[in-house]
Amino acid sequence: MSIVIGVIVLGAAGGALFELIADSRYATRQGDAREQPIPFSHMHHVGSMGIDCRYCHTSVDNSDWAVIPPTKTCMNCHSQIWVGSSTLEPVRESYRTNQSIKWTKVYDLPDYVYFNHSIHVKKGVGCETCHGRIDQQALTWQEPSLQMRWCLDCHRNPAPNLRPADKITTMGYVPSEPQEVLGARLMKENHVQKLDTCWTCHR
């Protein structure tokens, strides 16, 4: 019988260990800044230059895809600024040769997840809510764990994460009124629903 108890205890311990590992930042890559072919800094472009997110991620509010900007967007400015920088040579090369820059995806959702940026933006979920203080990230890291639990936390109770439409791209946003009041109001105004059925995300 001690064997049975031993098996149960070991099984439980193994299960707990498995969960610990599955939950660890190592497994989820949460907070992990990814190497990129060009060390693009959001901290610089957003934080110190104050460029709006949508300048580059043009389709974030009308498509499921926020878009990694084409090289042309970089060249809007870098045709004039930092033209001699060797760091930016891959950008110029890409522009010359019409070959895409191979960025490393930071927020890599599994293919069985359906995710739509525009609906989140329209319903008042700010960029900051998922991507964190992008204006402080030199190399972009994965802010949340991206575990299903994390998605569901908000999907089951969206109100704490809602903000007015004109504050979507704001970094370091502080609500102008208590979030409970604001959240409840925005839930109503934007017809935000609690969407936690399987087929909301798995289609």
Binding site: G15, E19, A22, D23, T28, S145, Q147, M148, R149, L152, D153
Partner: peptide
């Protein structure tokens, strides 16, 4: 198959 068992998991399911 262990998903069939009720245990706290990262999917919150």
């Amino acid at each position: 198959a262990y998903w069939l068992l009720p245990y706290p998991n990262t999917m919150d399911l």
